[in-house]
Design a protein around this nucleic acid. Structure first.
Lengths: 138, 138
DNA sequence: CCGTATCCCACATGATACTG
DNA sequence: CAGTATCATGTGGGATACGG
């Protein structure tokens, strides 16, 4: 019942200051994939954007429509979130060169594949978050 | 292909920015469970702590041993992370009243159940994070 | 319509020191 | 050993204004 995988077996923290060049540089820069992923989807608006886009997959959603479906988000955060997802190739961007321009976003196949593990989180959350909230309240 | 569930149908945006004047009626709109969960496990050390404890489940791990298995974490952050998990009833704490005292931590059943969706994240990450890193590099 | 640029602040995290 | 207290800081994210 102990570990059968080694996801977290490297720290992601630099350990030693002896010797300027250290050993291969592999000691610290190798973060665990789970932590890396959480750093990406843990942002305030990322999971919501993925959900909204996933609901239309493989269809597209325009910027303004995304904003409308994500109440409370600012233009800045929406653009920033989408840029990040685009850099990660989780979202594709298509510009219609009209005036004014229309910009369409869609999940890539990779992005859509991410909706699976997120759905696992959602299922767990829907089953158990109430209990956790109750524990915090009481 | 549109939404069949309503996970993200409320914004969860708070408007008060002063924080000190306790503005009544500023409701934290009901956040979606997924976002709430990500707020909890998205912390820098939470997923690692769950992993380390999960590897020993249903066994216990002592504070110092936990710290040893989470390279880079400070005592403060370890204690803080464990307190949070304990409040959420994801982790149980047992104190051995010796001198010096020994404190043992273990995942609760609820906490252990969380390792399932986290494993889904990990599996996805191990398959795809390299591709995402490559996209960012290039 | 679709952004970017600025300013600002709360907060998560870290370093360090102290205690039972 | 197992914490708590204090101080410092980088940054995520919000408000607002401007630009193509």
């Amino acid at each position: 019942m102990t570990a059968e995988d080694g996801t977290f077996d490297t720290p992601g923290h630099l350990s030693v200051t002896t010797g300027a060049d250290a050993h291969r540089g592999d000691l610290f820069s190798r973060d665990c994939p789970t932590r890396q992923l959480l750093d990406r989807i843990g942002g305030k608006w990322v999971s919501m954007a993925v959900k909204v886009l996933g609901d239309e997959y493989p269809g597209e959603v325009r910027f303004a429509e995304l904003k409308r479906r994500m109440p409370g988000i600012s233009q800045k955060m929406l653009a920033q979130t989408l840029r990040s997802l685009e850099r990660d190739t989780l979202v594709a961007r298509r510009v219609e060169a009209t005036t004014p321009p229309r910009v369409h976003y869609r999940l890539t196949d990779l992005g859509y594949s991410l909706t699976e593990p997120i759905a696992a989180l959602r299922d767990w959350a829907e089953l158990h978050m109430a209990q956790i909230d109750a524990a915090n309240a009481g």
